[in-house]
Write a protein that binds this DNA or RNA. Structure first.
Length: 839
RNA sequence: GCCCGAGUGGCGGAACUGGUAUACGCGCACGACUUAAAAUCGUGUCUCGCAAGGGAUGUGGGUUCGAUUCCCACCUCGGGCACCA
């Protein structure tokens, strides 16, 4: 018997597959005669970090590889592509540290990754490999950006952004959750800066609603919905009342006539800026409002201060409060245990439109300027935050009856509106290693897009990749590159020096795979029509409100331009759990517990590693790595090999014997010349095989790879015990194992090939079907319970009726022992499961 | 604080729709093979008990003939959101 040599076998088949390009997906235009039904499976393309491939990559790649391979065997034309999401900070930081070019570092890293991935035998279509840092790729990223610009959805705005003082970079809200930089963990600051923005808020409602159209896990949907933060409410205006002193400066001439009745109300029509518009989801509590609160950044505050300088008695206090707020970091402002702060605007009151009561106006930083209207009506009786604030500053808390929300809104002239938490996407970075924003600043013409034929705007060579303290991109130092001509008037102009965030290239990469070499458009329409949407996309939960949301947004935008045929990019999304280090802690360089897959492949083989990673636990849950446990998967693979070797030897012997016309040989592997005992064993094995085919087929669809493998382990144990494994049955077993362990199954399958016959990969053989009739048991063992406790077991025929089963149960010796002398109250029978006798 | 998961042997984990809890794997123990070791194969492995039998799926209650599964309360862990009006 030949020893199982994983290295030799794996290398051999990887070479064959590569040379024959067997996993290349067929395009409709190339293969226009009867194209097969398609299946587009996708994994999140890796960031080629200097650390090399992580065992976590292998987990999700293997899962989708199994699904892709099964689909091919089911007759689908499968697209399972791969590429590199290669722009990003770690490469740039490495470049800063070592002075090496990011492009060179990227090339080196992708080479490492490519080699590692190929060693594991993934069935990627390598002919479509893409790299987001390739000018031929980012040409189209820039092109799509310009479409946003042309539609007014990419705009430059001075706004308060999340600034990471350590990375010296502006961040999107999604990257600065809780005031913490996602990259380095330092506290972010708010900084006023002119930034490129993408108007994702224009799509907020559709991004929320269209989640109904796709097959995403509930946790993904709810997390996105949460982030988009849709809420329906009312906008209600509160008029202002200024104290009497205002009248001295006002239009009233008769000072003697100041009475309560002619106090000036700022009128909606004449001075609309002097109104406080609040947003509330609880208009029904309007009668309980005891004060209103403005965000410190609310624009009304300045207007009030300038217009009513004399009436407002605490201007200095107000100004100080606003200054203090500005100085606070986002983290300080939102931290949980922080007590509420605020200051009243003295001398001005608001009027509750429901009952015309005068109520004080406060400024407090618990109100956020960028949500709703930046102002709230406070109902301390019904809202915990308002109550805390009211208690601290001795503001009244009153109990008033609730009213109908819609009616009161209408009555006070308010409006029913929908608000979102989602903010526009801060899209510029002051960094080197990203796609240059393809716009030109012309003194005369303003912002002018680079013309299509001049795309891509390539990243220039720079001496230093370091971000600058002024907050400008390193690109701004290359005057040769910056100074250019205006595409419109040919006059003097300067390039934009900001680059795009690393989420840009990944927002549309799945479209480029479809037509990765296209020179005239980002992807051919016919091909898009055939391949989109992605049928199954697996990725990490950490991208739910980043990449997954962003790419849905880009896709919808392209859909509106009629550039893609589907509303949503991904039909089905699943999420893998993380692989943690031994003991359940995070795998990290600093802890020194990172597992290098190369070593595992070398020692145990790729097939074993794949089986192990699929077997280690439920796919969607986190699981701790255990090098000790890998041996179990290796033993399983070796068992498969042993059985295979035995069968193949017998099979070849038989062929030789037949050739020699020796009849009725006693070789027991082919279902002929068997004893009765052997034949019945063969039958029960066949039954088990069909059960296993069913289990594996269904488990793969549900990503329950661990239980699929478990059932195949049980089957191999039985096969090894059995002296008579039918050759065809064994082939079927190899076929269902093939997606999991592609090398060993290909080798064994190929060994069964009749000499001189053409090589036919197991991975394109037909996925085995199970025979429902064969699976059905004739006899089953059921449990006999007495008063709910299992006391015995009996064998019954599946066709036995209830009476017959009861009879059998009551005649059982053990049962008799228990029931003798007792009165049988009731017998419950669950078909083919159990029988419960109540005494 | 709110939302979503999860809690089962020494460990990773099985258990369909409420129907024989602990499949499969690791580890461990013993045995076979071997001069020996490794590898492999076999047997055993929740717990108390000599046994008959009893008790166990985070805790406490409930529904049910029957609950890991359904309901209520609580505890612990993981993840998300977090002054969103």
């Amino acid at each position: 018997m030949k020893e199982y040599n994983h290295t030799k076998i794996e290398k051999k088949w990887q070479k064959v597959w590569e040379e024959k390009k067997i996993y290349k997906a067929k395009d409709p235009s190339i293969d226009s005669r009867q194209i097969k039904k398609k299946f587009y499976s996708l994994i999140e393309f890796p960031y080629p970090s200097g650390d090399g491939l992580h065992v976590g990559h292998i987990r999700s790649n293997t899962a989708m590889d199994i699904i892709s391979r099964k689909r091919r065997m089911e007759g689908y034309n499968v697209l399972y592509p791969i590429g590199w999401d290669a722009f990003g900070l770690p490469t740039e930081n490495y470049a800063i540290k070592t002075g090496k070019k990011p492009s060179v570092v990227t090339k080196k890293n992708t080479n490492t990754f490519r080699g590692q991935l190929k060693e594991i035998g993934f069935s990627f279509d390598w002919t479509r490999e893409i790299n987001t840092t390739d000018p031929e790729y980012y040409k189209w990223t820039q092109w799509i950006f310009l479409q946003f610009f042309k539609k007014g959805l990419a705009y430059k705005a001075k706004s308060s952004i999340n600034w990471c003082p350590s990375c010296k970079i502006g961040l999107a809200n999604e990257e600065a959750v809780g005031g913490i930089c996602e990259r380095c963990g330092s506290a972010t600051e708010k900084k006023e800066k002119e930034q490129w923005m993408l108007a994702i808020t224009k799509y907020a409602d559709r991004l929320d609603k269209d989640l109904d159209l796709v097959d995403f896990p509930e946790r993904v949907k709810s997390q996105q919905r949460n982030w988009i933060g849709k809420s329906e409410g009312s906008e209600i205006e509160f008029k202002l009342k200024i104290t009497e002193q205002q009248l001295f400066h006002g239009s009233h001439s008769n000072l003697n006539m100041i009475t309560e009745s002619n106090i000036a109300y700022a009128e909606k029509s004449s001075t609309p800026q002097f109104l406080i518009k609040v947003f509330t989801t609880r208009a029904d509590t309007l009668f309980g409002v005891t004060y209103v609160v403005l965000a410190p950044e609310h624009e009304l505050i300045n207007k009030l201060i300038t217009n009513y300088e004399l009436q407002i008695t605490n201007i200095e206090e107000i100004k100080k409060y606003i200054e203090d707020t500005k100085r606070k970091s986002e983290l300080e402002r939102t931290s949980e245990d922080k007590t509420k702060t605020g200051v009243e605007i003295k001398g001005v009151k608001a009027i509750n439109p429901a009952n015309n009561e005068e109520i004080p106006i406060w400024i407090a930083d618990y109100v956020l300027v960028n949500y709703g209207t930046g102002a709230v009506m406070a109902v301390p009786q019904h809202d915990a935050r308002d109550r805390e604030f009211a208690e601290k500053f001795n503001l009244p808390i009153i109990d008033k009856p609730l009213v109908n929300k819609d009616e009161i809104t209408k009555k006070v002239g308010g409006e029913i509106v929908t608000k979102f938490k989602l903010r526009d996407w801060v899209f510029s970075r002051q960094r080197y290693w990203g796609e240059p924003i393809p716009l030109i600043n012309c003194e005369k013409c303003g912002l002018v897009p680079v013309v299509d034929k001049d795309l891509p705007v390539k990243l220039p060579e720079v001496r230093s990749y370091k971000p600058t303290d002024t907050g400008e991109s390193p690109l701004s130092a290359i005057s040769k590159w910056v100074n250019t001509k205006c595409p419109k008037c040919k006059g003097k102009a300067k390039r934009e020096t900001d680059t795009m965030p690393n989420w840009a290239g990944s927002s549309w990469y799945y479209l480029r795979y479809i037509d990765s070499k296209n020179k005239i458009s980002f992807s051919d329409k016919k091909k898009l029509k055939y391949w989109t949407p992605v049928d199954w996309y697996n990725g990490g939960m950490e991208h739910t409100t980043l990449h997954l949301l962003y790419s849905r947004f880009w896709h919808k935008f392209l859909y509106d331009l009629k550039l893609v045929p589907t509303v949503e990019p991904y039909q089905k999304r699943t999420s893998h759990g993380m692989i943690l280090g031994e003991g359940g802690v995070k795998m990290s360089k600093s802890l020194g517990n990172v597992i290098n897959p190369d070593n595992i492949v070398k020692t145990y083989g790729a097939d074993t590693l794949r089986i192990y990673e699929m077997f280690m636990g439920p796919f969607e849950e986190s699981v701790a790595w255990s090098t000790e446990s890998i041996i179990g998967s290796r033993r399983f693979i070796e068992k498969v090999w042993r059985i295979g070797e035995k069968i193949i030897t017998n099979y070849k012997l038989r062929i030789t014997n037949e050739k020699n016309k020796i009849r009725n040989s006693n070789i027991s592997c082919v279902g002929q010349g068997l004893t009765q005992e052997e034949s019945s064993a063969s039958q029960s094995l066949e039954k088990l095989l069909h059960k296993t085919i069913k289990k594996v087929s269904e488990d793969i669809e549900n990503m329950r790879f661990n239980t699929a493998i478990s059932s195949m382990m049980i089957l191999t144990t039985e096969m090894e015990k059995s002296q008579s494994v039918n050759l065809e049955d064994y082939k079927k077993f190899l076929q269902i194992l093939a997606p999991f362990a592609p090398h060993i199954t290909e080798e064994l399958y190929d060994k069964l090939r009749i000499k001189n016959k053409k090589y036919e990969s197991i991975h394109f053989s037909e996925w085995p079907k199970w025979d429902e009739n064969l699976i059905k048991d004739q006899e089953v063992k059921i449990a006999v319970q007495i008063n709910g406790k299992v006391r015995s077991e009996i064998m019954i025929d599946v066709n036995d009726n209830e009476e017959k089963v009861k009879e059998k149960a009551l005649l059982n010796e053990t049962v008799l022992k228990y029931i003798s002398g007792s009165y049988i109250k009731k017998i419950i029978y669950i078909k083919n499961r159990l029988i419960n006798i109540l005494i």
